[in-house]
Nucleic acid binder design. Structure first.
Lengths: 243, 243
DNA sequence: CGATTTTTTGACAGTATTCAACGGGGGTGG
DNA sequence: CCACCCCCGTTGAATACTGTCAAAAAATCG
């Protein structure tokens, strides 16, 4: 039996006990497929707490009363998406591409906290990592120019694809429409188009359809003005494994 | 012995067992005082994981390479600040007023996850709630006008002060300088000044020194264009208390 | 009281949005 | 297989919004 993306990701960080491995397997075994554009709504409080992306890209977003949308985060395979949407009812998830996900129900989550404290602590850590990413994106939105925000989105995506070993070279499929890029960066689609053109004209990127080629990573990164995120995540505090 | 703000807050949500109460008390008993303007840095990975605000206001922020600052979140008494700063090394904390805090070290946190799964789940939930707030602020930064962002900051602060019962009426002390408001909303101090004037001229607020009076809460809230945050937090999934 | 920070205001520059129009590509139904 | 349509991308011009620079008044601190 193949292990799920979450088990794989946690397994990369710590050495799982057989009991832990089994618990994760049980959680991830039920998977669901969704087509691009599908929205995973919270149905008035009766749905899953956590979503694990197995394959494809998701994004979480908030709708404002005037209908405008803010994309909060793009979720790649192995990510814990919707880590809080369902407990607090703030945002929703939608599929950027065709996706395969597994959902962790509330009851299962409670059992995990009771039976496997170390896994619970790992989930806590992963959620914290997501939050850190959110914070960096917030700084990008609040304090950088349109060019920088678009560049930051591309660089961030590159880095995350890389860390999964999915993307060997500097060319990858980027399935966001310019409208979606705008919703992620807080810009209009029109202005996103202009900024992409600027990046292309300066030789930093090259675009053909949905494929993106990073031509000058260093300058693109410089333009992104990202606050640095030094160091590995500290896992020294995790409790002993049980079971 | 008086209980700390965190114990009080958790105790408001669930009925604590004596063991849990004692564990929280042990965590919060060591308190530290800081003067306005002090910065709590992570010292290359050797500091506390979590900070509980006991008294006064804090804020967490990110610095960009050009020196500009984005304030991510204002923390009021009872809040769990720095929930991830220290595990991921992204942001730092600073004191908006003179403050009293307690710090939860990594070892203590690990012990808590091992011994008190229900408290661990509560911390997880509180952190998720913080993240939800972050998401709403992100939508505010990305998708609303300068006026709306300033209004949203004020309304959010009002709501949070209220939920703690600190602020009976619509007038309260607001210790942020306009520069700090700007760093929180992604604006320049000059423009913050203009927006505050607009709000005051429209009869929504009144300012005298550091005291803020909300004159027309309804219209101010409307101007803030906040994405709604329906419903209470779901706690039905928490595991059994142990100890 | 003097020094420093914060607030306030005006004029101007720069950035992003809005509005409008057009071209291209992919999918659908005939 | 083709025509059509709709969505997406592209571009230009005008407008609105926010930032920058500079200077002075007010408040705060010691």
């Amino acid at each position: 039996v193949r292990s799920g993306c979450l088990a794989e990701r946690i397994g990369r960080a710590i050495r799982l006990t057989p009991g832990e491995e089994q618990a994760l397997q049980r959680i991830e075994e039920q998977q669901r497929s969704l087509r691009r554009g599908s929205v995973i709504r919270r149905e008035h409080g009766r749905s899953a707490d956590l979503v694990v992306v197995q394959e494809g890209w998701l994004f979480s977003f908030v709708l404002l009363d005037d209908g405008s949308r803010q994309i909060l985060r793009i979720h790649l395979p192995g990510d814990l998406a919707g880590s809080m949407e369902e407990t607090t009812g703030t945002s929703a998830l939608a599929a950027l591409t065709d996706v395969r996900i597994s959902q962790i129900g509330r009851a299962e989550l409670g059992r995990l906290f009771a039976d496997h404290p170390r896994l619970a602590a790992m989930l806590f850590t992963i959620a914290q990592d997501e939050q850190a990413a959110l914070m960096l994106r917030m700084a990008s939105l609040g304090r950088t120019s349109a060019r920088a925000r678009v560049a930051a989105l591309l660089i961030d995506t590159l880095d995350r694809l890389r860390s999964d070993g999915v993307c060997a070279d500097l060319s990858f499929l980027f399935p966001l429409t310019q409208e979606e890029i705008g919703d992620a960066t807080g810009l209009t689609a029109v202005h996103v188009n202009r900024m992409l053109r600027v990046l292309a004209e300066n030789g930093m990127i090259e675009r053909t359809n949905a494929t993106l080629l990073i031509r000058d990573e260093h300058r693109l990164r410089q333009m992104a003005r990202q606050a640095s995120r030094r160091g590995r995540i500290d896992l020294g505090w995790l409790p002993e494994a049980r079971g």
